[in-house]
C-alpha cells in the first residue's frame, strides 16, 4: 500500500455564489487524510463539513486552494478520482420504488460491476448490516434508519478505495449504529480510506484514527482523539454529586452546574486532589479524561448540538 495520503487539501476555500458578502463556507482549510484509515470530520451543522466532502468527492468546485484525492488533482483529473470513490451524501435517500436489494445491486451495476459479482457483494453487504431480511421490501416501506443503512450498505459494497460517509448514522438506533460502525471498521481493515463526517462525537472517537474539528469553515484542531484531548487547558473532568458548594469547588478548576451536582474541569493534580477531597466528604465522584464533547465545548465555546447560524451558503448543508 502506498504511503501517499488519500486526500491532501491545501488552503481550500469555498464561497457560494449566493452567500452574503464575506461569508465563506470554507476558509483556507488544509488537511491530510492518510490512506487506509478512518478520518473523522467533526463540527456543528453549518461548520463546512459537507462542503469539504463535496469538494473532495468532485461534486463541488472550490473557490480557492488545491486538493489532491488519491494522488489526482480534483479539478483536472476528476475521472481518475471518480473511478475509485463512493459517497453517501448527507440527507440522501434511496429511490423509493426500489427494494433494499435493488438499491445496492443496481448501484453496483451502475458502477459497471459484473452482475454476478454485484449479486455476491450485495448479499454480503446486506447481511453485514442486518438488511437481508428486508431485501425484498420496498424502500418506501422502510423506516428512516433502514433506508440510511441501505445507503451505507450500497457504498460499502462498492469497489472503491475511498468512501465518503456524510453523517452515515443519523437517525439510527444504537444497535444499528454499532452495526454500521462495525461495517465501517471492516472496510478500513480492507485498507480502504473512509472520510466520515459526524456530529456524534462518540462515533468520531470510536471509529477515527484521526479527527479534524472544524468551525465556521476553519480548522480548529486536528489529531488523534488522545491528542485532541491533550490540547485543552484542563484535560480532566471530575463529576461531584452531592451537597458540595460551588465556592468549595472553584479553586480546583472551571466549574459547571449539572443535574444533582457539579462538573469540574481541572489539571490532573487538581483533579486527583478534588476527587480525594470529595470522597472524604461522602460525595459521589467520578473522574476521567475530558471527552471530545468537552474538548469541543472548550475550543468552540458552544455545544456541538447547537447549530451554527448559517455560516455556509444556501446550497450547503
Amino acid at each position: 500500500m502506498s504511503d501517499d495520503p488519500a486526500i491532501c487539501a491545501i488552503g481550500i476555500g469555498k464561497r457560494y455564489p449566493k452567500a452574503p458578502p464575506g461569508v465563506a463556507a470554507l476558509a483556507d482549510l488544509s488537511l491530510t487524510v492518510p490512506a487506509g484509515k478512518i478520518y473523522g470530520l467533526i463540527g456543528q451543522n453549518g461548520a463546512g463539513k459537507t462542503t469539504f466532502v463535496r469538494i473532495a468527492a468532485t461534486q463541488l468546485t472550490p473557490s480557492s486552494g488545491e486538493m489532491y484525492v488519491l494522488g489526482h488533482p480534483i479539478l483536472r483529473e476528476e475521472r481518475a478520482i471518480r473511478a475509485r470513490i463512493a459517497c453517501v451524501p448527507q440527507e440522501s435517500r434511496p429511490l423509493y420504488f426500489l427494494n433494499t436489494e435493488e438499491v445496492v445491486y443496481l448501484y453496483l451495476k451502475l458502477r459497471g460491476i459484473d452482475p454476478l459479482e454485484a449479486r455476491q457483494r450485495t448479499k454480503a453487504a446486506l447481511e453485514e448490516l442486518s438488511l437481508w431480511e428486508y431485501r425484498k421490501r420496498q424502500v418506501s416501506r422502510l423506516s428512516g434508519g433502514l433506508r440510511r443503512r441501505a445507503l451505507v450498505a450500497m457504498v460499502l459494497a462498492a469497489d472503491a478505495d475511498l468512501l465518503f460517509l456524510d453523517e452515515p448514522t443519523t437517525g439510527l438506533d444504537p444497535l444499528a449504529r454499532r452495526q454500521v460502525w462495525e461495517a465501517i471498521r471492516r472496510a478500513s481493515r480492507e485498507h480502504r480510506t473512509i472520510l466520515l463526517t459526524t456530529h456524534y462525537l462518540d462515533e468520531a472517537e470510536a471509529l477515527s484514527a484521526r479527527i479534524a474539528l472544524i468551525d465556521k469553515g476553519r480548522m480548529l484542531l486536528e489529531g488523534t482523539a488522545a491528542e485532541l484531548r491533550g490540547r485543552v487547558r484542563l484535560p480532566y473532568r471530575v463529576s461531584v454529586q452531592g451537597s458540595a458548594l460551588l465556592s468549595e469547588l472553584e479553586p480546583y478548576g472551571r466549574v459547571s452546574a449539572i443535574e444533582g451536582g457539579f462538573l469540574v474541569f481541572a489539571r490532573e493534580a487538581d483533579a486527583r486532589e478534588l476527587a480525594r477531597w470529595a470522597l472524604e466528604r461522602g460525595h459521589r465522584v467520578s473522574m476521567g479524561p475530558v471527552t471530545l464533547e468537552d474538548v469541543f465545548l472548550e475550543v468552540v465555546g458552544r455545544p456541538i448540538e447547537q447549530d451554527e447560524p448559517l455560516a455556509e451558503g444556501p446550497e450547503a448543508a
Partner: peptide, 18 residues
C-alpha cells in the same frame, strides 16, 4: 427530483459513471 430531493445525482457524480 433526483438531484435536489434524493441526492441521487451526487451519488452518481462520485462514481465512475460519466
Amino acid at each position: 427530483h433526483y438531484r435536489h430531493d434524493l441526492k441521487f445525482q451526487d451519488i452518481v457524480v462520485a462514481s465512475p459513471v460519466e
